[in-house]
Design a binder for these strands. Sequence first.
DNA 1: ATATATTTTTAGATTAGTCTAAAATTTTGT
DNA 2: ACAAAATTTTAGACTAATCTAAAAATATAT
Lengths: 242, 242
Amino acid sequence: MLLAIGYFSYYRLSTVDNQLITSFTEENYLKIIYLLTERHNGNEVSTNQLAEHTQTKAASVSDMLRKLAEKNYINYRKYQGVTLTEAGEQIALGVIRKHRLWEVFLVEKLGFGWDEIHDIAEQLEHIDSKELTKRLDDFLENPKFDPHGDPIPDAKGKMPSVSYQKLSEIPLNQSVVMMGVSVHSPAFLQHLDKQQITLGCDLKVLEISDFDKSYGLLLNNKIRLFVSNEVARNLLVQVSNA
Amino acid sequence: MLLAIGYFSYYRLSTVDNQLITSFTEENYLKIIYLLTERHNGNEVSTNQLAEHTQTKAASVSDMLRKLAEKNYINYRKYQGVTLTEAGEQIALGVIRKHRLWEVFLVEKLGFGWDEIHDIAEQLEHIDSKELTKRLDDFLENPKFDPHGDPIPDAKGKMPSVSYQKLSEIPLNQSVVMMGVSVHSPAFLQHLDKQQITLGCDLKVLEISDFDKSYGLLLNNKIRLFVSNEVARNLLVQVSNA
DNA sequence: ATATATTTTTAGATTAGTCTAAAATTTTGT
DNA sequence: ACAAAATTTTAGACTAATCTAAAAATATAT
């Protein structure tokens, strides 16, 4: 809600009868519940997991879950974990859409590296303006994926389904295209940068070392390199259709 | 402060020992104090004025002033109003810089009208990233003024001084250039749009009506039109040097 | 110059989101 | 299957930012 009197004005979170409709905090919880549920193929998310990912204590999470359940954003049975209701999922997807669109903006328009954008997008994802999101989407030419390869939910609140495999699950000598990463830490992304592993590059597993289970790869049909098992498990790829 | 564990992360306002360094609320108070002080040519801002512009009660303002004074962001003598300290002014100018840069972005890049951007900029001005502000500034080609003609403080925290006059103070038949507005309400801005009065246009006062003190103008040396006294007092202009 | 009106501050309460400690529930291991 | 371990919830407390009502200070008006 924007309050304007005379020349200036003052932004406060939207309220109805002095109660927040959806606070930043609630949005964060819903987003994290969505992402963790997705990761578990739709299974409930536990209180402790949420405490870990929100950087709070389990007691605080319990309180918030009670509140989110009251607002019908989550399905919550005590001690049994939570899933999102349709309403909760729509809020989560809206936040994720904004997060990923802003990430595209930061990389494509402002020239940030894919390892530098997460913190900023964590803030921008809470900016509340339907029209802004729409215009930003058009300005960016309606991107379908963010700079980490994650799909961007559409304006109607639908998450495109993607089916990537881990590089570690691909048979030897199968050509694949690098489509995403399952870890977004700056350290991991910078590590990939140093080896010129980028979204869209061609990869082929030539061997898996007996010594340390590292992966010997052929990059873009030219460059031979080794990546650790850890790296191979966090690269998301798709079998080339060419 | 961004907290990251594993795949996700979670944004909370920056804290030191669990105390906010500068909350959105504090930033808003400091910004409003700056703008009101500027309007009064450096005189103290009163509690009631702040209550009006923050849309809160005087009691709440008193509390906040005590807190801001404790942090040495304002000079506060009870019952005597406040001014900003150097530290407080730097925070205010940082917020105003971001606000105005984002306004340029919204108009120049996303095609918003100058009457639609204020509410969104009120949110964006609190995004906390030095690097983002720097890159946004470059992306916009280091604009010196926002879409309302207000000067943009530089990265060092210096507000450019501008000296505009109200159209209502300009002698008859003096050619001037429209440089800004002293009211930012959508209604006023849309009213100007309808008469094709835009930043940079040429204006000349041909007459002031005896009947209703309205202003008969020549716009861009072509179009004759009348604007109310109220409009003339809120148009900021500069004598043409051509 | 002093009574009245206005402005500002203080006192005490409320809400969102967090915490620690303790109680309740579920899971695990033998 | 049941005791021990782990997880989750509840209870009670704290902080930031707000509120209303009352007290204190300042300004105003005859």
